[in-house]
Simulated scan of single mutants.
Amino acid sequence: MLIQGNSIELLKSNEEISELKGKVNLIITSPPFPLNNKKQYGNEKGEEYQKWFTELAPVFSDLLTNDGSLVIEIGNAWEPERPVQSLLHLECLFGLVKHPDANLRLIQEFICYNPSKLPSPAQWVTVNRLRTVDSYTHVWWLAKTDFPKADNSRVLRPYSKSMKQLLKKQKYNAGKRPSEHQISETGFLTDHGGSIAHNFFEMEVIDEQREVRLPHSVLSFSNTNSNDYFLKKCREKKVIPHPARMSGGLINFFTQFLTDEGDLVLDPFSGSNTTGYCAEKLNRKWVSFEIKEEYVKQAIIRFSEPDINSPLTKLKS
């Protein structure tokens, strides 16, 4: 279900929508970042941003089931007109976990590296050349309990070539390592179908000579893919796509990691509704909110894909 309107106001005041309280298994979103310049999709700045962001905590907490999760992607902030990184994004995180009416805690932080990001902050990177490119975002996984629903066996990475050889030989050097870890003789001989995912997402290859082993759920979807149905249709219709789309790969990963089929996924700032699209393909129920009509229309373009009901393509290792 896609709802046009201010998600926070609707969730607080609309009686029908407020029935979602305590029923959402996963809130996953990329809210407007704390940027110094106003963007078309809307964003607050400075202290106003921190106040707005912190006040989301009790709203989100009320929506979640007891074992539900909140996943937020957010970029870095910089001090206005200064080549100094701001602490605003960290203050926002502290505001979420310290809010007295929310009972949220940080379960784990993930880093999403994207070398396709334009050089920013431009004044200090490309003009004065005082800083390096800010090329990653933070992804925070929060929950109301220390043990939210999660299963990392659903989001395994393909095994490395050396691990495949080890499994084939059924032999390796056991014993004590310089780190003082004791490696047992059989601890790495069971084929689990892949290795446990890392909390670092390399959305594009850093080193072309090195094999990238992201979970299939991340690799199966890329916002930068020029053959993407949504982007092709936008080009045909001369529509400028939402400039800050959350990676479908990230959404796939956390949806599979933290929910079961039939669970409810919610995105309060959905833009062109990548979240709803991914949830639909993964057989999850979903509710998305978007305040701007032009992005709602883009979501309709996304859902015009002929095979929208087909399962996500699984890449083979």
Rank of each mutant, 00 (worst) to 15 (best):
2 L>A: 00
2 L>S: 01
5 G>R: 02
7 S>A: 15
8 I>G: 04
12 K>G: 07
13 S>E: 15
16 E>D: 12
21 K>Y: 11
21 K>W: 11
22 G>D: 09
26 L>F: 01
26 L>C: 05
30 S>C: 06
38 K>E: 13
39 K>L: 10
39 K>W: 10
40 Q>S: 12
43 N>P: 00
43 N>L: 02
44 E>Q: 10
45 K>R: 15
48 E>L: 12
50 Q>F: 13
51 K>P: 00
51 K>Y: 11
52 W>C: 00
53 F>E: 05
55 E>K: 05
58 P>G: 03
59 V>W: 00
64 L>T: 05
67 D>C: 04
68 G>N: 01
68 G>I: 04
69 S>W: 03
80 P>E: 06
86 S>F: 04
86 S>I: 05
90 L>A: 12
90 L>D: 14
92 C>P: 05
96 L>E: 03
99 H>Q: 07
109 E>I: 03
111 I>K: 09
115 P>S: 14
116 S>M: 13
118 L>Y: 13
119 P>Q: 11
122 A>G: 10
124 W>F: 15
129 R>A: 08
131 R>I: 08
141 W>A: 07
142 L>H: 02
143 A>N: 03
145 T>H: 00
145 T>W: 05
147 F>Q: 14
151 D>S: 13
154 R>F: 13
156 L>F: 02
157 R>N: 09
161 K>P: 03
168 K>T: 12
177 R>F: 09
178 P>E: 14
183 I>A: 08
185 E>D: 13
188 F>Y: 15
189 L>V: 08
190 T>W: 12
191 D>G: 06
193 G>A: 01
196 I>K: 13
197 A>Q: 08
200 F>D: 08
201 F>V: 09
202 E>G: 02
203 M>T: 01
213 R>H: 09
216 H>P: 08
217 S>K: 04
223 N>F: 03
227 N>E: 13
231 L>K: 11
233 K>Q: 15
241 P>V: 07
250 L>D: 02
256 Q>T: 13
262 G>N: 05
264 L>C: 04
267 D>K: 06
270 S>R: 05
270 S>F: 06
275 T>C: 11
277 Y>C: 00
282 L>T: 04
285 K>Y: 01
286 W>D: 01
290 E>T: 05
292 K>H: 15
294 E>V: 05
295 Y>N: 04
299 A>G: 15
300 I>T: 14
304 S>V: 06
316 K>V: 11
